[in-house]
Write a protein that binds this DNA or RNA. Sequence first.
DNA 1: GTCTATACATAGATAGAC
DNA 2: GTCTATCTATGTATAGAC
Lengths: 202, 202
Amino acid sequence: MAGRGRPRTKGPSISGSTEQDILNAGADLFCTVGFGSVSTYKLAQAAGISQATLYHYFSAKHEVLLALLLETVRPSIVMAERLVGEKDLSARDRLRRLCAYDADLLATTPRNLGALYLLPEVADDRLSPFRTERDRLLGAYRSLVEQCLPDAPEPEHGAVADLVFGLVESVILRRQRAGGAPLPRDTGDRIAEASLRIIGPG
Amino acid sequence: MAGRGRPRTKGPSISGSTEQDILNAGADLFCTVGFGSVSTYKLAQAAGISQATLYHYFSAKHEVLLALLLETVRPSIVMAERLVGEKDLSARDRLRRLCAYDADLLATTPRNLGALYLLPEVADDRLSPFRTERDRLLGAYRSLVEQCLPDAPEPEHGAVADLVFGLVESVILRRQRAGGAPLPRDTGDRIAEASLRIIGPG
DNA sequence: GTCTATACATAGATAGAC
DNA sequence: GTCTATCTATGTATAGAC
């Protein structure tokens, strides 16, 4: 199981890949301690490598955070854009599924990775590729809300999408208050139901 | 207007109080850059004083953040506990007012101070006095939800209160995405209406 | 009450041996 | 691919003059 064929000289990796060890360590630390509060030394230590070795895998500290952000948001984007185009289900059902999927991810993944979205450092220019992706996700929510409320005036779609998206993301804050521990498994479904109540009767 | 009777030798204060200058600078920087990413040097510079003078007013960097957190959450607690005891209004009306008040504060105050709640550093032991206060606020929400849903089973109250509290706090995230700029003035009312829809028909 | 100066530790990133 | 050693900058906090 360990090493999976990749020869290593020292410091056996837990995951089988040193890069993954670094990402795992970053996920642990950035979510709980913050970004600016974590030194590259502590990050490397948590990954089981020396501080210098970090720079063999990432050219700078913020690149670790960027990689984490992108890989965290990607599954949601894939699911969202699939549901936007999936015309066999009603718009309400598709929005329900998206909310349930996203909220469940945020609530039950081993680490509270959504907390990365909350870091003020995300506003940094060097992390703009992530913000672009998150805007794509928000756009998909807006499309689904629009399909749910075809008769509503235009600006209303964005406002309602903001409410729904916000309700889903509020799972992150709740989990952070709970010390990062996973939330009950019905969290996703409850969020989805509440979202549809915000949308109004079908 | 400036100085308000307090003699100053150098570095005229903008606000009339150096302590307030420090808090203002902390509000600006911690919300936008983060806590660990802000040095005491930059903090002092933004407050218009030397780095050493900071330690005349606060014994350590985290004390600045603690003061900000406590003064940010206090108005919400005062309003919440007043509404919990105010029996002249229906429970729904009181919850509506609380949600509208809190969401409006978060949406329209000059700085996006709610973003302070999102900092991972808030989990630090030295900031536990703030977490205690925030739990008091959450308790008030739960009390009001309980009064709105007297027939619901016990654990349901906490779950619904989490949804409502989360929806209110989602304003922070939305504003952060908007670069910290104030949100439309109807944000509080919209959040309050959506909260009551989550609660269900009266 | 504010400053300059400084102590001392840690920061991010690079060089070069193995 | 990983390390030790190191560079240079910056970090927090304190000492002591004014």
